[in-house]
Design a protein around this nucleic acid. Structure first.
Lengths: 290, 290
DNA sequence: CATGATGTCTGACTTTAGTCAGGCATATTA
DNA sequence: TAATATGCCTGACTAAAGTCAGACATCATG
């Protein structure tokens, strides 16, 4: 009753019946679940037939028939792939987009009414983020992005917010060195965002300098995604990118209040060096030769 | 991407595929999911056919056929109900128990491997408890129990632990008045435990005294279950029980560090009174006339 | 350009899930 | 005790999901 395994299983049971309810709500639109799922997959931007089949785990025969039924309803059109005419690409027609919007509205209403029923909103959302990240951690993708992109800016906002909470003296971006986006774009550097099923859950910047080294900046992992070794993955990918850019020496600064970060650096081949800038926040400095 | 509704929906997607994986793992035992579910329902102690049907949401014809197929496999036996020969009671045969144990092992392994993959075990479990409680809150049952039962003792242990954390001076049961179990049994009093799908998530004691009143003691709601108005439900049920026992006056003591509790009492018709005992921990005293 | 590989489609299935109308035995009630 | 209700069962269906073999067009390669 009280051991960890029972708690996980209780969660599974609770969630199974909730998921079942969501599925049946999708049946209200007068088409079987299989067809609804295909329609929604297309609506969410999966257009390659093989990709959809793979995502939904369908047999190719079944997939083909479901697509046909959606075509007969006038919701979907399929055309041959540009580069390879054997592959097919599915898109929604105008009617298909309307129908997809109706499913979206259903899902949104369901999610809203779930939230409306519970007073512990923030705690609940944080718990959901944590579990969703844990469940999808194999499917976390690390993508290079522009540091000015929406996802990158979201990560940076969360990062600054967290520094503000963890530093005794608070944190003011303007006091720290300017997070110059230009230096975190190829070919001078790069910016990497970890995405778990559309939600950004971590980031790191590689910032080129003119001093013979590049800096690692703004390593952040969402609280919900800690414990998944995401920091390590982000660092490894950044180092690989740096090598690819011909960078030979990396440096970074951090603060001893961020204990996890310091540990991560020490464990992955970084060595402490004397202060190399006059930024007011950091009190720990590292470097790594590639 | 970042609004609450999207976060809920991301959670739904993550969990849907996890649940699907559990379902398919159940197919490995060579029988359809429907039959496996019935077998497991019986294994978990649901014996009345109507109860199982209701729990699994099955049509009576389908239910009957699934039972037949399990009988044909030699896993289940059904007999007429003692009190009403129209109703049927299903039990597992020896082979059925073996098969049920195999399903249990599958579920346990799945849960264990999920836990083993994640370093944030406690946070993850707490998040799962929270969500499971939120999802099943309509199905929380309040049961009168012996205060010495396993479930009651678990609640009390959690309750004392929490007092220890929230009181500046800590909390030592032995210093407080003895939680005499005898006085929390009928006809002198009672003890109520809130159970959400096998997990105890709250409790309250009604303790008879010889001073013309009864006391409410040990009101506790698990952190994972807060915000569901469970405290109120527990108090209401206790007051009903007290009325049933002919009790006219209720008293309770609490500590101002437990702000939620004080609020709950004030909002539900209790009035503050002067100290009526010399227990070292409480500093707030209430009474309510029934 | 022949050969084999790949991606999709169709036809011909099977299995699973679910529905509905009665039937039968047993209980309840007027 | 006759009428009615209840609980479970069977037969006869339908719908949905899933499987498999082979057809066909297209692509990659020696």
């Amino acid at each position: 009753m009280l051991d960890p395994v029972s708690r996980v299983r209780r969660f599974n049971r609770a969630v199974t019946s909730a998921v079942g309810a969501l599925d049946t709500s999708f049946l209200g639109r007068g088409r079987p679940l299989g067809a609804a799922r295909v329609l929604n997959a297309i609506g969410h931007g999966r257009s390659d037939v093989a990709e959809i089949r793979d995502y939904l785990g369908l047999d190719s025969g079944l997939m083909s028939r479901l697509l046909r039924s959606l075509e007969d309803e006038g919701l979907v059109e399929t055309i041959a792939h540009e580069d390879d005419a054997r592959r097919r690409v599915a898109t929604l027609t105008r009617a298909g987009r309307r129908e997809f919007a109706a499913y979206e509205a259903l899902s949104n209403t369901q999610a809203e009414s779930f939230l409306a029923q519970h007073s512990q909103r923030e705690a609940l959302l944080a718990a959901m983020d944590l579990i969703a990240s844990a469940l999808t951690r194999e499917r976390v993708t690390l993508d290079e992005m522009d540091p000015r992109s929406e996802q990158a800016r979201y990560c940076l906002g969360e990062y600054y917010g967290e520094l503000g909470r963890r530093f005794k003296q608070g944190f003011d971006v303007s006091l720290s060195r300017d997070p110059d986006a230009k230096d975190m774009r190829r070919p001078r550097g790069t910016f990497i965002v970890a995405i778990s099923d559309t939600l950004p859950i971590g980031c790191v910047g590689l910032k080129g300098t003119d001093h013979g080294y590049a800096e690692i900046k703004r390593l952040w992992v969402a609280p919900a995604a800690r414990g998944l070794r995401l920091g390590r993955r982000l660092m490894e990918m950044t180092e690989d990118a740096a090598r690819g850019l011909g960078i030979k020496l990396l440096r970074l600064d951090t603060n001893s209040a961020l204990a996890e970060a310091g540990q991560l650096y020490r464990r992955s081949g970084w060595s402490e060096i004397p202060r190399f800038n006059d930024d007011p926040y950091p009190d720990l400095f590292f470097e790594k030769r590639l």
